[in-house]
């Protein structure tokens, strides 16, 4: 879990760690942001991303309540999604993910890896979000093929990404090392629609 609170360090010479996401706003991206609002891109790198592997048909899988290719949003605001046939992700604030995780039965829960640091997460929203994604990804984003709640993986601007259509926005996640590049690619794709960066 991300821990940005001050730590009680035994060695007083060492500073408390500062968490940094992979996405740095560069002149390349900020120069494209005209506040037009057709597409809004928000770095959600501070969200906790917990990956679980569960056996099919197990109590744990049932409690997660999603199948491969779908997602739901819990009352505490956590996005739970089935991104691979036996692979589930919990995405949200540290506290809410911890809470959801604590409520899961142990039966069928094979393994878990906290990939908060490993994944860049960009939230894409705005009236032209779909139009922008169609410029960087070969998936069919129509409501029939990628409805609200849909979850899948695909190449986005030539980077392997997970894509979840959560509520009114899309969550796009990639390996952290590609984060800066992905942000710049999405910003460039969005520029014809008017781009807003950040909340």
């Amino acid at each position: 879990m991300v821990n940005t609170t001050d730590l009680d360090l035994t060695n007083s010479g060492v500073e408390a760690p500062t968490y940094r996401t992979s996405v740095v706003v560069t002149p390349a991206t900020s120069g494209l942001a005209d506040g037009g609002g057709g597409v809004a891109l928000v770095d959600r790198g501070d969200h906790t991303k917990l990956m679980l592997r569960c056996d099919a048909g197990s109590a744990a899988a049932a409690a997660l309540g999603v199948s491969f290719g779908s997602s739901r949003i819990t009352d505490s605001g956590v996005v739970i999604t089935g991104l691979r046939p036996d692979e589930y992700w919990l995405i949200g604030t540290a506290e809410s993910v911890t809470g959801e995780r604590a409520g899961l039965p142990a039966d069928g829960l094979r393994s878990e890896v906290d990939l908060t640091h490993g994944r860049t997460l960009i939230e894409v929203s705005g009236p032209k979000a779909t139009g922008m994604l169609e410029k960087v990804c070969g998936l069919d984003f129509s409501d029939a093929m990628t409805p609200r709640g849909a979850a899948t993986s695909a190449s986005v601007a030539k980077v392997s990404c997970d894509i979840v259509r959560a509520g009114d926005s899309y969550l796009v996640a990639c390996d952290r090392s590609f984060g800066q590049y992905l942000m710049e690619s999405l910003a460039d794709a969005a520029r014809e629609f008017g781009l807003t960066l950040g909340d």
Binding site: R53, R110, S111, L115, G118, R119, D175, R176, S177
Partner: peptide, 11 residues
């Protein structure tokens, strides 16, 4: 029973 997870970017 083995779960493989790439963590190149995580660390």
């Amino acid at each position: 029973k083995v779960d493989v997870t790439p963590v190149t970017g995580a660390y």
